[in-house]
Write a protein that binds this DNA or RNA. Sequence first.
DNA 1: ATTAATTTGTTCGTATGTATC
DNA 2: TGATACATACGAACAAATTAA
Lengths: 87, 87
Amino acid sequence: MAHHSEFGPDDEIDYDGPVTPYRQLAAILAARIRRGDWAAHRAIPSEPRLVQEYGLARSTVRRSIRLLVEDGVVYVVPQRGTFVAGG
Amino acid sequence: MAHHSEFGPDDEIDYDGPVTPYRQLAAILAARIRRGDWAAHRAIPSEPRLVQEYGLARSTVRRSIRLLVEDGVVYVVPQRGTFVAGG
DNA sequence: ATTAATTTGTTCGTATGTATC
DNA sequence: TGATACATACGAACAAATTAA
């Protein structure tokens, strides 16, 4: 039995589940940030990188990032990258 | 002779019987879920798919699903699909 | 100074779900 | 029954800015 919640972020996208892929990716990235994969004001992987890593379309990846921005988890610098928000 | 109850769910809709088609479909789907065709939190076939598979109108299919929701067998996620309920 | 590579920004088209009328 | 709306996902193309060679 896993030690995370029923719909918690795993590391794989589930297309047949009730949670949309873009929300799954957002949860995954948020979890990785909390876990400390990237520190505050450090860049998370680029959009093409996330596309490759999770097998999603870029438009979907961008939707995830938009969600994370709205939640104050990350911020985007145009033509530069997406960075972990923080104190 | 079949090994299910007298009016139990078959895999075909009987239009001449006493049970309404939408209740038949609901029973069929419930049986398929019990049988393990789809696990908990997995999507069941889409409405258009069920329309095609069972030769029913979409409104009828939706009525079946509503019944299954009321019975706690499945739950619907708007703009996403219908999923098997489960602990 | 040029060029190429990288990264986000934008738009279009197609497909599939459910929701609604 | 049929049509339309809304949300989502994929794919592709191009623009704009930055950075590195």
